[in-house]
């Protein structure tokens, strides 16, 4: 996807989102609330997967703590919304809340990025996992955000339009970033860190940038999630949630934005369609992960060797 292409997609995405938002929530159309909810879930999953893709796919830094960033963004955004207007009548505050959540998550990303300067591979994976868990434990102990019993009564501001508009922006920003001259550095870090370093690429700065940017969008996704479910509990942001996002990135083919977005759609719809077999749902899910890794480790939508760059 070249830059003009990406821009076209962005405009198309935002236009579609605006139209969808206008019609989907109008009562006369009478769309099923359940399907609307699932559609918003899909949009949030796209933002999460595409933002993690910048860290795991393009930059090649294995992060297992994406749910932690989402939690930071979600709780911050919810708290801001509740401070502005507890009754939920100040929808103008929503962008502000989302931005606040994103910024704080980016700060958390900066904190996680710093150890990544010294650690690689498995060590980095476990440290990011640890950060995710620390955030969860910290939230569990914060009375001001409801501690273990959760934060209730968040106003419902998230609409289909907000979700898909922001998803389009996320895809655009990350694609444009990676495809820019500056962004080639991410791919250089991914392909060969030592070679990149010796070519004069500031690898540490790229890694931290990837973490901060990825975390920012995860924070936005968290904010959308908070104002969609209207309830947050620390258990919703555990290790399993991070794994979900990682699986989306791998299923889509690391570093392939379109594939990752498609995988986010599939993996959000799949559990919904398996609801009828809820007893076996998670067993099937884990079997699918194993089979996928054996049969198509390069991702579902990768049919040829990547030619470098982001698609």
């Amino acid at each position: 996807m070249s830059l003009p292409g990406a821009k076209r997609w962005l405009l198309l995405g935002i236009a579609l989102a605006a139209v969808a938002s206008h019609f989907a929530h109008s009562p006369e159309l009478g769309l099923n609330r359940y399907y609307l909810g699932v559609a918003v879930d899909v949009g949030i999953a796209i933002i999460l997967a595409v933002s993690l893709n910048l860290i795991n796919g393009h930059t090649g830094q294995f992060s297992l703590g994406h749910a932690g960033f989402m939690a930071v963004g979600g709780y911050t955004a919810a708290k801001i919304s509740l401070l502005i207007s507890p009754a939920g009548e100040a929808a103008w505050g929503f962008p502000l809340a989302l931005l606040g959540g994103g910024l704080l998550a980016a700060l958390a990303g900066l904190l996680v990025g710093i150890p990544s300067l010294r650690l690689r591979g498995d060590y980095l994976a476990i440290v990011t996992l640890g950060f995710g868990e620390i955030i969860r434990v910290a939230v569990q102990n914060m009375e001001s955000v409801g501690a273990a019993s959760g934060l209730k009564g968040i106003p419902k501001y998230t609409t289909l339009g907000w979700t898909f508009g922001l998803a389009a922006i996320t895809i655009y920003v990350i694609t444009a970033l990676v495809n820019s001259t500056y962004g080639r550095g991410f791919i250089a870090v991914h392909d060969d860190e030592v070679a990149a370093e010796s070519m004069g690429i500031p690898t540490t700065r790229y890694k931290v940038t990837a973490f901060v940017t990825g975390a920012f969008f995860a924070g936005i996704a968290g904010g959308l999630y908070a104002h969609h479910k209207q309830f947050l509990s620390p258990t919703g942001f555990d290790f399993l949630k991070s794994i979900d996002i990682v699986v989306m990135v791998i299923l889509g083919g690391m570093g392939r934005t379109a594939g990752v977005a498609a995988a986010a759609v599939i993996l959000t719809l799949l559990p919904e369609s398996l609801r009828a077999f809820s007893e076996y749902r998670m067993i099937i899910y884990s079997l699918l992960i194993i089979l996928l890794m054996m049969l198509r480790p390069q991702g579902l939508f990768t049919f040829q060797r990547k030619q470098g760059g982001a698609s």
């Binding site: 294995f62 076996y280 992960i289 890794m293």
Partner: peptide, 26 residues
Amino acid sequence: LRQRPRLAVLITAIGVSLLIEFTAQH
């Protein structure tokens, strides 16, 4: 998966772990 990238093996290991956990919880 012996010759595959280590990441693929790591994800498989997580998959095996989830499989055992969810099967045991049934």
